[in-house]
Design a protein around this nucleic acid. Sequence first.
DNA 1: TGATTTAAGTGACCGAGGTCAGTGAAATAA
DNA 2: TTATTTCACTGACCTCGGTCACTTAAATCA
Lengths: 199, 199
Amino acid sequence: MTTDRKKKALETRQKLLDTALKLFAKRGFEHVSIAQITTTCGVSKGTFYTHFATKYDIVLEKFQEFDAHYVEAAKKIDENLSPPQKIIALYDEQMIYLTTVVGKDIMRTVYTAAMTNQVEHVHYLIHPQRTIFELIRRYLEEGVEQNIFRKDLSFEAIEKMIQRAMRANVYDWLIHAEDFDLIKEMHVFTTTLLDGIRA
Amino acid sequence: MTTDRKKKALETRQKLLDTALKLFAKRGFEHVSIAQITTTCGVSKGTFYTHFATKYDIVLEKFQEFDAHYVEAAKKIDENLSPPQKIIALYDEQMIYLTTVVGKDIMRTVYTAAMTNQVEHVHYLIHPQRTIFELIRRYLEEGVEQNIFRKDLSFEAIEKMIQRAMRANVYDWLIHAEDFDLIKEMHVFTTTLLDGIRA
DNA sequence: TGATTTAAGTGACCGAGGTCAGTGAAATAA
DNA sequence: TTATTTCACTGACCTCGGTCACTTAAATCA
């Protein structure tokens, strides 16, 4: 049941989220304090923590929202391409999205949080139900049906490597200065890895 | 010239380093404060910062020391192996070392710092002069001489991918719980990638 | 030797993320 | 309607990494 109180609480939560993301975008995650966010919203510091467990959670929530984009991206991919080509096409799309829309700052936060806040459950970064992983899995299943992959590697092993290739390039993008072309690097790396997986 | 004063300062520095690493090993990096380190050493908090720029620097210094290990590891590698086999052998050695001696805690610190503290210069994690990278480069040069690699990939592109494969697996190790066998994962992944690089 | 410079060491202080006993009004129970 | 419970919200407080004006004794200079 949605009472007045719950509705108001949700409004507060949403306002905190919006304000935080706006400030992060303007000044960068590290340069925005919780106090800044809450005073901008006209609430106390403690209120932030009734809605979010940590500062990272704001970014993580937004990041999960981004996954919806991949469904759209997948629709644009030519159905006649080979499974490896589809994977490459999807990764190309994703890297364009990460560099132009999501940005380094948010990605750095997600990749840092995955290393530190991984106490309780599996981090979203490697969560099997992530939209992008489901898409990749579908393409790989196609590839298996078409007998284009090596038989000495298990489906799970191949799947893991393809996912890992993504994180590998994103991580290297994050630790490099502006001289790193994520789209190009991801393309070459994943293509080469897929060559090693082909029968 | 080594004056009495400089000698004593170096002693203080060394004591801070040893104490910090001992405490990190016992309680974990995140659970040891600078205050704990300095009071254990019988100096003030400020003293820590006359010798180290950040808390991370302690770990980074130790990490750089570890690189010396790879020269020894390289000596054990059979000279008759093919260049790709040598690379795999070296990575096998390195992963055993990381999991049994260095440990997840220190590695997590290094991999986090690489993302956040990369303002000034290139982080050591991707420093071209790292012993391990020099070794890899030598093996790759051997491979080029023997014509075993694809010709459509530049030497630098191949080198980058091999290095990236290492970070990919270490990063995935860091974000996974105990169910991740770094040695095995690194072996399969790098072998597959090298297959994709072979002519 | 005495005057001056240098730098290791000090500790009060800052702003940060995060905590928690307490408050008050809305929701529910009587 | 009145009593009780619930919970969004408060803000003083904690610990932490890091800063900096200052102290003091060793090193250097005259």
